[in-house]
C-alpha cells in the first residue's frame, strides 16, 4: 500500500512541476515525471512478491504457475505506454526548440502572443 502511495506522491510532484515552473523545459520534465508515475503504478498492479515469469516450463508445475506467476498484461501495457510517452516527449522537445528559435526564451510568462 505504501508503494502505491509513493507513486501518487510522484505524480503530484510532476503535476506541481508542470503548474508552478515557468520554464517550458521544466514543464516538460514535469509531464514526463507524471507519465512515469503512472507507469510505475501499472507495474505495481502486476507485481507479486517472489513472482515467476508466466511461462509454463517443464520444471514448473501448473499449481506453482497459478499461485506465483505474475500478471503479464500490465507489463505489456507499460511497454506501450512508454513508447507513446517517447513519441509525445519527442514532439514536446521539438516544439520547445522551435519556440526557442522564435521567442529566444524558455520563459512561459514571456510567450504570450495569444490572449482573450
Amino acid at each position: 500500500m505504501f508503494l502505491y502511495f509513493l507513486t501518487l506522491v510522484l505524480m503530484v510532484m510532476g503535476l506541481y512541476c508542470l503548474i508552478a515552473k515557468k520554464n517550458i523545459v521544466k514543464k516538460i520534465i514535469g509531464i514526463v515525471i507524471m507519465e512515469y508515475s503512472i507507469n510505475l503504478f501499472l507495474i505495481l498492479i502486476g507485481y507479486k512478491k517472489d513472482g515467476i515469469a508466466p511461462i509454463l516450463l517443464k520444471n514448473v508445475s501448473v499449481e506453482e504457475l497459478t499461485s506465483r506467476g505474475v500478471d503479464p498484461l500490465p507489463q505489456a501495457l507499460v511497454l506501450t505506454s512508454i513508447v507513446i510517452g517517447l513519441g509525445t516527449l519527442a514532439l514536446m522537445v521539438a516544439i520547445c526548440l522551435r519556440i526557442y528559435e522564435k521567442y529566444k526564451t524558455f520563459d512561459m510568462s514571456k510567450i504570450n502572443k495569444l490572449k482573450g
Partner: peptide, 29 residues
C-alpha cells in the same frame, strides 16, 4: 509564433488529460 505557443499549450494540457485517462484505465484494470 502563435501556432507554436498554441500547440505547446495544447500539448501540455492534452498530456495531462492522457495521463489522467491512463491512470483511470489502470485503476479499472
Amino acid at each position: 509564433k502563435r501556432e507554436l505557443e498554441a500547440s505547446f499549450k495544447y500539448l501540455i494540457l492534452g498530456g495531462v488529460a492522457s495521463t489522467a485517462v491512463l491512470f483511470g484505465i489502470a485503476f479499472l484494470y
